[in-house]
Nucleic acid binder design. Sequence first.
DNA 1: CGATCCCGCCACATT
DNA 2: AATGTGGCGGGATCG
Length: 879
Amino acid sequence: ENIFDRSRMAPKTPIKNEPVDLSKQKGCTPERNPITPVKLVDRPQPDPWTPTANLKMLVSAASPDMRDREKKKELFRPIENSEQSDTPDSLPYDTVDDSTVDEFEKQRPSRKQKSLGLLCQKFLARYPSYPLSTEKTTISLDEVASILGVERRRIYDIVNVLESLHLVSRVAKNQYCWHGRHNLNQTLKMLQEAGKLQYGEPMIFFQHKEQDLEYKFGEQKKETIPNSQDRPLLDSSEPDCTSASANSRKDKSLRIMSQKFVMLFLVSKTKIVTLDIAAKILIEETQDTVDHSKFKTKVRRLYDIANVLTSLGLIKKVHVTEERGRKPAFKWIGPVEFPGKTDEPRGHSPTSDPLPGMQRGACDPCKISATGKQKFTCNASFNGAQPCEGTRRKVSSEPNSPRQERQDEYCSKMISLAAVCRQKIEEDTRNPSITSPLSLLSIPGESDFCVNPLPQAVFPVVQADVPSLSLSDGVSSQALQPPTPAASTTENGKPTLLPNQPFLCFPSSSLFMLCGGLQENNSRETQPTAGDVGSRSTETQAALPPATSQKRSSHQCASPSVPVGNEEPAAKKQTMEQSDVPLSLAVPKKPSESHKAESTPGSGCTPAEHLEAFHLDLTSPVASEGADKESTKPLESQKQEKWSQNKDPDEPSPGKEHISKENANQPFLPQYLYVQPTAGLSSFNFLFSANQAPGAISLAASPLPSLSVPCVMVPSAALASFPLVCSPAVTSTLSPVPDGSFSAATSMNFSMSGLTSTRPVFIGTTAVVTPKVSPVPSVDPQQPSHPALHLSPVLARSCGAVKLDSPVCMGHPVTLLKLQQPSSTPLTPKSIRPACHEAFFKTPGSLGDPIAWKKNEGNQIRNASSVQRRLEISSTSPD
DNA sequence: CGATCCCGCCACATT
DNA sequence: AATGTGGCGGGATCG
């Protein structure tokens, strides 16, 4: 196209030649000449100029119209430059010129293409999220500006925000140093703490009135202001800069604003901040007084900041329905809890990862690195201390996906499910014994989706709920009650575990691992990571639906994510069907002390890293969406089924139970491996017990011991969000806890929790519960071996072929459900399965080649919208 | 028509 | 003074 234009332009241009802004031209890459022979100005050389330059030249020369067009084009070029269109000939255009031209141009250039958010993504794509420490990446503003085809001014907008989060630091004039997200969590934590100080605790920014949320800041703000000034908070970290002088300038208002803005999110309970509120707060004025103009300006800046944060995957745009109507707002989808503290559980939501492509290399590495780094291992784990290491970071990928659309649907579904679940749950919960249902929550993301539509307080609810579930710890204790009726889906959604049950549910997110005995676990981070990329969307899916609160039956698991548990070969089928639900793991053992530990924030344990990766994935809305749907339906059906099933303990959650049993049986290994889901898997995570068979499974990647297996799958999504819990391992290794007790779980959670969010995963020790009974529906629960076997096979397959559907299915928790209730299957299965399948695939792949997977699948996946995938999957499932 | 937010002028800071 | 930074808000575009 450009070509065309150029050609057209050429004539004119040459003549004028004016000055054009060469300045801008800079370093563009030289293009091929193909096109343009146009003589650029003086220099005949076609090539030399970069596309941009040419354009500019032309533009200047050209009429205004032309300019615009040109500009637009320019934008593209940098990015894609080459698309030469071929035809210069395309007469049509030429002839038509104007009209035609316009069209073209219109297409391209839209204003959005130049948006700061997009620009920021491009910018971020150039650097690895987690650069090796060894490499120091310096960023030249001029260079970047030219490469990206924008004026330097725009780069400042991006860099200033990034700097506020310490992703970059200014080293010299025109030079910035890229740090990546390694310290992001730390920075966020600081901001959160600073925010608390300033703003006071959790604010109540909003209160949601029942359904609608409102945010009121009013008063709360007040305080903020005072402090706000202080930059110290913000930057305390930034030392360098500081040089004294620094303060003075107006400085950095953008930087400061950015930090404050982030703080608002971190302090907010709902994690949603409306623009106007933020603007008011940031303005310092507490009151409305502010002049309108000032307010307006502030809002403008906030948009700039929000675009960058959105690109970073830390927030996403949502709308809040208030009294007056809907207001633009942003929801925090980044990590919420930082190791030390507990905040709210959920935090992230979905992010899509559109970017992946962009980042490509970078991403992978990052992820990988991340994974590698961390492991979330909880070493101590079970024993009380939990030393977990991991940092968790959530990384978010970039949001952006369009896909969200579907979310709504999901949301609605979820909601309904949630409601149902809730009821059930409530009922279930009643039993005190059970602590709470667990919910998995996978869903944080969901809420997002929902949010808009649902006024209800989904968010709030969710958050609260989640915590409650968990067991432990401190995590979130706050919220405990599940219940709000209103609570939206999320609550429900999460899979709750039943108290007694021995299972754990994990959210779908990707990763985590647990270790029972082992401390280390291995996490396979890499895979997970990979998963993120590829599967992100999918992953989340699993998480969602948590609703089931059912008691013991596997349902729980199922609900949100799909857990899978089973897997026998034969079983596979079954399993597959089950799919969606999150898995629950059952871990029989108990952990002894762990709980306590858990209670603590778990700073240590979390597997941050993995999480991070996951988060990314998780975050993506898309994923969540998917999850929701899947989960939802299933849930419902499940519920019913479950209910019925509940009766039969045995059948129901096969996977889980047996697992648990197995675990019980095998006490040995407490360890589990966690495998992150890869993209495909997204939802599920697998846990393997260390013990088992020998190498049955070897994960490709992982070093871990191969485990044989008894694995548990956990939905990845959930995990990400939530802290995982590890059950104590199994058996005895740890101290034996009473079976029933949660302790084990707790402990597990604990560690996990630290990580992530609040949501916890639970693992119940339960073995107790039904091990016998329930034992897994799927196959034989009883036989521990099976599981192992199953898994292994699966794994093997996965590795080998990865594709296997069936295997996959098996793994998933879902299966469990199905097993229990065949009837239900139909519904659920579909939805579920898909997920499962994917998950499996991915997983396996991940195991084998995580990376490869990503690429392959990821791409594919990406291509297809999540929805599509689902559909596809679902279709498949039927068989 | 309100929400977004691109664009780039221009002031202030730094060199 | 030149150049780097970045506040700021007009007004175009989007939805």
